[in-house]
Write a protein that binds this DNA or RNA. Sequence first.
DNA 1: AATTAAGTTCCAAATAATGGAATAACGCCG
DNA 2: CGGCGTTATTCCATTATTTGGAACTTAATT
Lengths: 276, 276
Amino acid sequence: MLAFLSRVDGAMNSNGDGMAQARETGTLGKLMVLLDLVTHADGPLRFTDILALAGQPRGTLHRQLSHMVEEGLLELDGDGRYAPGLRLLDFAARSWARNEFRLIAEPHLADLQQATGETVHLGVLRGQSIIYLDKVDGRQPVRMYSQIGNASPCYCTGVGKAALSLLPADRLADLLADLSFTRFTAATHVSAETLLAEIREIAVEGYAFDREEHEAGIRCVAAPVWSEDRTFIGGISITGPAYRLSMELLRQWAVPVQRAAGQIMEGMRIRLGPRR
Amino acid sequence: MLAFLSRVDGAMNSNGDGMAQARETGTLGKLMVLLDLVTHADGPLRFTDILALAGQPRGTLHRQLSHMVEEGLLELDGDGRYAPGLRLLDFAARSWARNEFRLIAEPHLADLQQATGETVHLGVLRGQSIIYLDKVDGRQPVRMYSQIGNASPCYCTGVGKAALSLLPADRLADLLADLSFTRFTAATHVSAETLLAEIREIAVEGYAFDREEHEAGIRCVAAPVWSEDRTFIGGISITGPAYRLSMELLRQWAVPVQRAAGQIMEGMRIRLGPRR
DNA sequence: AATTAAGTTCCAAATAATGGAATAACGCCG
DNA sequence: CGGCGTTATTCCATTATTTGGAACTTAATT
């Protein structure tokens, strides 16, 4: 049911500088396409399935898949079906555990959750997607992976639009040019024009809303966050059901969200020093 | 504080079988060594650091790192330091979300948590490490990534020893021959002999204990779990502080843990059919 | 047993990776 | 500002790996 994300994330390494230069990553690039293919599929794929999707010669594909299985990036079950490898979990767990941005943001996310009682997210822009780095849910032990690590479109999430408002005009234009819109709800932006208009507004106001644009019945208010070296461009948000979060309430919450965002950025300055 | 894990997990792809058939994964293998290097480091690494650790020519290394950054496997910050890439999170989130074994086990883990009130883990053997696939903690919203995805040594965890008890003698011998022991506590096995003796016992009894072997003050009881095609060999465990979990209590809990393990395996049979 | 489909192995040709050295950028200090 | 040590990046002939078509093996079907 989340299969549509494939589109979105697949475009993640579009280096959209106008001319669409095919990626220059040699052998690795080809293997990553395969990894993308398998991880984005709805279930395990057999050799022939991948062969059809990848459009490569049999011999080549076979060696590539074998190497990836050998390295633990993919797993091959008893029925000859390929699935994402669990070694990826180990890599990701380490990537996440030591991420400076997340570590610094953590306490401020918790504060914001306490203050509002609603779910708080931290996300960063990667390519055209928002990758969620953290989530604090007020209620019972949440299945964290359910959100952390997930990639969502930038054009229909609060964090995404907040992030876009930070981009310089030229980078924003490039990104929008490469963007393809999928309508998730009646409120989803489906054209660069309306999106750009809202982003301009967000850049002025300093906060963004998601007016049930990604999921019906879910609203949020978000504020942009960035690191000084611009490695991280993203945002934090408070998310909840529309029946509980009126637009008026969200407007009030813009203040604490912006304050938390400011504290996180201040924390980065202190921690990482004034370099660059 | 968990930095010591680096050592241990590093051994996951140690091909240290005396003479070491060098891995036959071509270019990919070389890149994975680098990814391992960066993800296992204590912090971001500069080019020169990696150069020293990898022992490769400058030109080669530079191109390799560039490709990996381009693909999102690594990230390069403003100070020229390499860190694990966030794209790994997206891969891992997908790998985890659709893992059949975990999906089937989930409700039984929750049951077991309810019955005992203590923390429940699900892990599988990958190489010489146990990778934790799931965790159910009774108390407050836990930072899930803190455990899920983490790789721990097989020789000093309940799940690990339970998993080892499932291996046929020859595979077990191979694995033990390659194993290098790190003493974490006074109770840690540090020789293949004593470990093998305990594993034999576990194979008879059908359950394993961790008697504060990995972390002082932490005990657990575990039972082996495997899929019919042997793709997954692992276990589930109940873990908690020694002051609350006497060895006597753990012995009593062996029964419900084994029952839950049985239910999970039954679930796999039904779900995946009697193939292979 | 015959037939089709699915997966695996082989090897000359094409391509990408290699690695030593030259070049460029940075950071520090006088 | 200019020089010096450090660090990072680019270049290109050589070398090793990947490529891809076809032959081969294995498994499933009738």
